[in-house]
Simulated assay, not measured.
Amino acid sequence: MARYRESVCRFCRREMTKLFLKGDRCYSDKCSVERRNYPPGQHGQGRPKHTDYGIQLREKQKVKRIYGVLEKQFRNYVGLAERQKGVTGENLLVLLESRLDNMVYRMGFASSRAEARQLVTHGHILVNGRKVDIVSFRIKPGNVIELREKSRTIPSVEESLKTVTRRGVPEWLDVDVANFKGVVKALPTREELPPTIREQLIVEFYSR
């Protein structure tokens, strides 16, 4: 799998919005978007002209980076969303939200999706009592997600749970912090997802 080793804060600056890729740092005054609210690079403070294609591309790149998905897999999600009943853009967002790594992040066991992916791949997460180490595993309503008993003393997990109230837990999740466990009550509706995402632009990008 491709691995980006540079500062992920550049992604936020490139998209000119917080993508919450660095956990608690994104909520502090150290956030790069707060300190330098312009794209990186020597031409970052210029006045770029945005075409329709460029606007669609930036929205696609933004959502890919938010959920930590590479291009091939993201395109597959778009294709799957098109084949499902309903609105393609909304289907796409629900598919991304139903990934296991995203659910671990939403429940507060990790301060970022990258940290959540690490927990999953290292075998710290149980789904319905069984270990699952596939980050793209699709979670369904009624599934129970919990940390293995031996993993509950991991410092990063403890720190994340202390600050979970600041990030907030979605209403479609029921989290028992004391027992390191969460239940997916339902998959989110469009109204419960970030309004800053313009999913229709992504659909238009892949329909070209």
Score class of each variant (00 low, 15 high):
R3P: 02
Y4R: 11
R5M: 11
C9H: 08
R10V: 15
F11Q: 04
F11C: 03
C12D: 04
R13V: 05
R13I: 05
R14H: 02
E15K: 04
K18E: 07
K18W: 03
K18Q: 07
L21T: 07
D24A: 15
R25S: 04
R25Y: 05
C26I: 05
Y27N: 15
C31K: 15
C31Q: 12
C31Y: 12
S32Y: 09
V33Q: 09
V33S: 14
E34N: 13
E34D: 13
R36M: 13
Y38Q: 13
G41S: 11
G44I: 09
Q45M: 14
P48W: 05
D52F: 03
Y53P: 01
Y53S: 01
L57R: 00
R58P: 01
Q61P: 02
Q61W: 01
K62M: 10
K62Q: 03
V63Q: 00
K64I: 00
R65G: 00
R65H: 02
Y67L: 03
V69H: 03
K72N: 04
K72E: 06
K72M: 04
Q73G: 01
R75Y: 07
G79C: 01
R83F: 04
K85H: 04
V87C: 05
T88D: 13
N91E: 13
L92M: 08
L93A: 02
V94P: 02
L95M: 15
L96D: 10
S98K: 08
R99K: 14
L100F: 11
D101Y: 11
D101F: 09
N102F: 12
G108W: 00
G108Y: 03
A110F: 09
S111K: 14
R113F: 08
E115Q: 15
E115I: 06
R117N: 06
T121F: 02
H122G: 12
G123V: 13
V127H: 03
V132Q: 09
D133V: 05
I134F: 06
S136Y: 10
R138F: 07
I139P: 09
I139T: 14
K140W: 08
K140P: 06
N143A: 09
R148Q: 15
K150N: 12
K150T: 15
K150W: 11
K150I: 12
R152A: 12
P155W: 08
S156Q: 15
V157K: 11
V157S: 14
E159H: 10
K162I: 12
T163L: 11
T163P: 00
T165H: 13
T165Y: 11
T165A: 10
R166T: 12
E171M: 09
W172L: 15
W172V: 13
L173T: 04
L173D: 05
D174I: 06
D176I: 10
N179K: 15
K181A: 09
A186H: 08
A186V: 05
A186Y: 04
A186W: 02
P188W: 05
T189E: 15
P194F: 08
I197T: 07
E199L: 04
I202P: 02
I202Y: 00
I202D: 01
V203C: 06
V203H: 00
Y206A: 01
S207T: 11
R208I: 01
